[in-house]
């Protein structure tokens, strides 16, 4: 009898302990969101990301391991605006998890407060089909990053209301860190205002608008449509006409066409830029990613402007 009682008590104590020790399992689509969730929710969450960082989000293969992670998670945090079209919709259709399906209670869409840039004037597959709701690369602007954190905090606090008070100072502190980074970078980029830039894949207006640069054109013809010879010719004319001297190419895209264009135009510099947290070794947090991204462009721009003055 005593033994049975002890066993029952033991099981009860064990189960109570494990329930307290259990962390909230969060899966994020991108490493940037993982860093944000970890900063906001701290030790109460265990976060896994589906994308690793160097990948191109349009070409992420739907791996079975994604299904395992999604099946085991409590909350799914996504970038939104169809950013994850290559792997999230198919993965969600493949699993048994009603509460993390799009629009469900534990599906957090971080684009909620974002005004999309580069929204197509009409929805037509002839215009490219990868950004039908506008530029989905919202995380490249730290201002957007703050709004994404706001969604994460609000939604997570709504789902786990017991943690809301605990997470609030962490959230506020993190937002302030991002904001401080914006101020620092605003100061850093002074003198490069009006810098004309060519990116590879559409969607970079968020960054150029924030820091006073000018997005001149893109190497890709349209989002997801590789450049055709006529588009490349046109791009060369635009670069020559606009006097653009800097091509900033995301690390996940090939340099072959940018190099060809640069050779044809002459006097054009090409730099590699990270497009996500962990896209490069030194970008292991969102703050570091933003720092490296903006400073690299500003430094290259300053050099070009200095040479032009000479």
């Amino acid at each position: 009898m005593k033994l049975r009682f002890l066993l029952i008590m033991g099981i009860m104590i064990f189960s109570v302990n494990t329930s307290y020790a259990q962390k909230i399992k969060v899966v994020t689509s991108t490493p940037d969101l993982k860093d944000m969730v970890e900063n906001i929710c701290g030790e109460d969450v265990e976060v896994e990301t589906l994308m690793k960082g160097p990948e191109n989000h349009h070409a992420v293969p739907l791996k079975p391991s994604f299904l395992v992670k999604l099946s085991r998670c409590d909350v799914l945090v996504v970038n939104g605006l169809e950013y994850e079209h290559a792997f999230i919709p198919g993965a969600l259709l493949s699993i048994n998890k009603p509460n993390i399906q799009k629009g469900a209670s534990h599906y957090i869409d971080c684009s909620k407060y974002i005004k999309p840039c580069e929204v197509p004037s009409q929805l037509d597959l002839a215009l490219g089909d990868l950004h039908p709701l506008g530029g989905s690369h919202i995380h490249i602007d730290p201002g957007n990053g703050i709004l994404m954190c706001r969604v994460i905090y609000e939604q997570m606090s709504s789902i786990y209301s017991d943690y809301a008070e605990k997470w609030k100072p962490q959230y506020e502190n993190y937002v302030m860190q991002i904001y401080a980074k914006i101020q620092e970078l605003r100061e850093y980029v002074k003198g490069t205002e009006g810098l004309k830039l060519i990116f590879y894949h559409p969607g970079w207006s968020y960054l150029t608008d924030r820091f006073g640069w000018i997005k001149t054109s893109y190497v890709e013809q349209r989002a997801g449509i590789p450049p055709t010879p006529s588009h490349i010719d046109n791009l060369i004319k635009i670069i020559k006409g606009e006097g653009c001297r800097l091509m900033t190419i995301e690390v996940c895209y090939s340099l072959d066409i940018p190099k060809y264009v640069a050779e044809r135009v002459g006097n054009v510099k090409i730099i590699r830029i990270p497009h996500h947290v962990n896209a490069e070794p030194e970008c292991d947090t969102y703050l570091k990613f933003i720092d490296v991204l903006v400073k690299r462009i500003a430094d290259a721009g300053r050099d070009i402007m200095k040479n032009e003055r000479r």
């Binding site: 407060y113 974002i114 005004k115 201002g143 703050i146 709004l147 904001y179 914006i182 608008d209």
Partner: peptide
């Protein structure tokens, strides 16, 4: 408030 464009976007979005 300082991120005024973003704040404006909030209303539109």
């Amino acid at each position: 408030k300082d991120l005024a464009p973003a704040e404006e976007a909030t209303l539109k979005s």
